[in-house]
Amino acid sequence: MDCAPAEHGSVARPDRQQLVPLKILVAGGFGVGKTTLVHALSEIPPLSTEQEMTSLSVGVDDAAVVPDKVTTTVAMDFGRITVDDAMILYLFGTPGQSRFWFMWDELARGAVGALVLVDLRREDDCFAAIDYFENRGLPFVVAINDFPGSGDFDDETVRDALVLHPDCPLVRLDARRADSALGGLVALVEHAVARSAA
């Protein structure tokens, strides 16, 4: 679906409210398939944005100490889905390491929820993300990426291993396939709607 030209912004949408952005986070350990999933779903070519670590803590008055060279930046892949004529959903692949949690606070604010990708060969990598979203009360779904061998464990075994709350949906998907990845997003949004009703 193409996005609507901006020229139509205020005149051609009498019945739809203004443009509205939404975001979903895609979290999980390094190499679990976050980037693959974002790229499978995105309608735009893969984009990456940088967040500079110092930029959040240095105020206007400290301009003199702003380094003239970028020292540490965190790259973040993201994608875009035009949902309807006025709604655009962004998917952000969030760095999994706990030292990047300062970014998650900004990213998590106002998010629909998070898809936590898990590689069952390295399931320890997802605990940080699960803990974070549980503590923040952000709706999330655990999605097992379909790596070889992931079918060896049934859902109950996985839930036990990850100490998942009974209400937390568990899905399986292939992050390389758009239709499969989309199923993960739908499960998350269903969960977010259900949580919204409570």
């Binding site: 912004g9 409210q17 203004q18 443009l19 509205v20 952005p21 939404l22 975001k23 889905i81 949902v83 309807d84 709604m87 959903l89 604010r109 106002g110 998010a111 629909v112 989309l182 997003l185 739908v186 949004v189 269903e190 977010a192 709607v193 919204s196 009703a197």
Partner: peptide, 29 residues
Amino acid sequence: LAVHLPLVDADGRPRRELLERLLDGLRAR
């Protein structure tokens, strides 16, 4: 530039009607 901000409830979460609209849009793909 005109800016279009996310529409969130008092609790900072996206409004329910937006979530339902998102769900409809994703299911229709």
